[in-house]
């Protein structure tokens, strides 16, 4: 399967889904005018990717989303649902949610996504400013 790479803009995420490394990265901020349109190719890629994996496979998801608006929140929930469903089929899904220690909103948002997941592993990874 081909990687999915989308360049970051002010209001849309940097997407780097690398199937060879089994590493899915999302970074930046998400508040486009039309979140459904932006996430449509992201979701289709995820659905296809996870449906082709068999039990025992392991995938790492690395996320550092500084801010997202309410419609992106719904779209991200859909992405997590695809991952969680795969985890339920025996695929090891490790989600790492990075956030700045002082970004309380991002921390809270990560925790609330974690509450919604049944099987996928969700780890909070706070970081400080680089010295």
């Amino acid at each position: 399967m081909k990687p999915l790479i989308i360049q970051q803009t002010n209001s849309t995420l940097h997407v780097d889904f690398n199937p060879l490394a089994a590493l899915l990265t999302l970074r930046g901020e998400s508040y486009p005018e039309n979140a459904i349109r932006f996430f449509e190719p992201v979701l289709s890629w995820l659905r296809e990717y996870f449906s082709n994996l068999s039990s025992g496979a392991s995938v790492k998801v690395d996320m550092d989303i500084v801010y997202f608006n309410s419609s992106s929140s719904k779209a991200l929930m859909n992405c997590f649902d695809v991952m969680d469903e795969a985890a339920g089929r025996g695929i090891e899904v490790n989600i790492c949610w990075r956030h700045h220690v002082e970004n309380e909103v991002a921390k809270e948002c990560g925790e609330e996504f974690a509450e919604e997941l049944k099987t996928a592993i969700f780890i909070m990874a706070p970081y400080k400013d680089a010295e």
């Binding site: 801010y67 608006n69 700045h100 002082e102 970004n103 309380e104 909103v105 991002a106």
Partner: peptide, 9 residues
């Protein structure tokens, strides 16, 4: 930083 994020949101 927290206030900035909340107001921005």
């Amino acid at each position: 930083r927290g206030t900035i994020q909340r107001v921005f949101s």
